[in-house]
């Protein structure tokens, strides 16, 4: 049985191997973190981690990542117990609408896992493929740097 391992839990996805990972996560596993933004891997809103690497779940078939460790925004913490990056985004009030924030946090998570103390330039470069329309970029960069500083 093909199984999707998401945030430490295993889910049977028999028959859904060809479906976009994003839709399986959102519609079948009922996770709200990853967002549909473009379906083209252009905006980053759908980003999840697969074995620690940021992946655009909108263009990834669910069957491609079976038995790999998938982490979504929900895997970093919850509304009652937010994780380090999530706390930093709250502390910096780092968003307006928040639709892009899933992708920004997940991309930042991958960055900090590889480079725990990035420079501001490194953060901006890492996030350059994540689009934000509200103009909360600087707040989000500060949030990532705050999370790194508090590590």
């Amino acid at each position: 049985m093909p199984a999707l391992k998401v945030n430490g839990h295993s889910h049977d996805i028999d028959g859904l191997e060809d479906a976009p990972l994003l839709f399986v996560l959102r519609n079948d596993l009922k996770l709200n973190g990853p967002k549909f933004g473009c379906g083209l891997a252009q905006c980053g809103a759908c980003t999840v981690l697969v074995d620690g690497e940021p992946v655009r779940s909108c263009v990834t078939a669910a069957g491609v990542v079976v038995n790999q460790e998938i982490t979504t925004l929900e895997g970093l913490g919850s509304i009652d117990k937010p994780g380090k990056l999530q706390q930093a985004f709250i502390a910096e009030q780092a968003m307006q609408c928040g639709y892009c924030v899933n992708g920004v946090i997940m991309r930042a998570k991958a960055l900090l896992d590889q480079n725990p103390h990035p420079s501001e330039g490194e953060v901006r470069l890492a996030l350059d493929g994540n689009l934000c329309r509200c103009g909360a970029h600087n707040r989000m960069v500060r949030a990532v740097l705050r999370a790194a500083a508090e590590a």
Binding site: L31, N32, G33, K35, F36, T72, L73, E74, L76, G77, S78, I79, P82, L85, Q86, F89, I90, Q93, M95, G98, Y99, V101, N102, I105
Partner: peptide
């Protein structure tokens, strides 16, 4: 602090898409 931000950083249900 904005009331909606804790929802938005954690994937709690808040958007019409959810």
């Amino acid at each position: 602090p904005r009331l909606d931000i804790p929802f938005k950083v954690s994937g709690a249900r808040i958007f019409v898409q959810d």
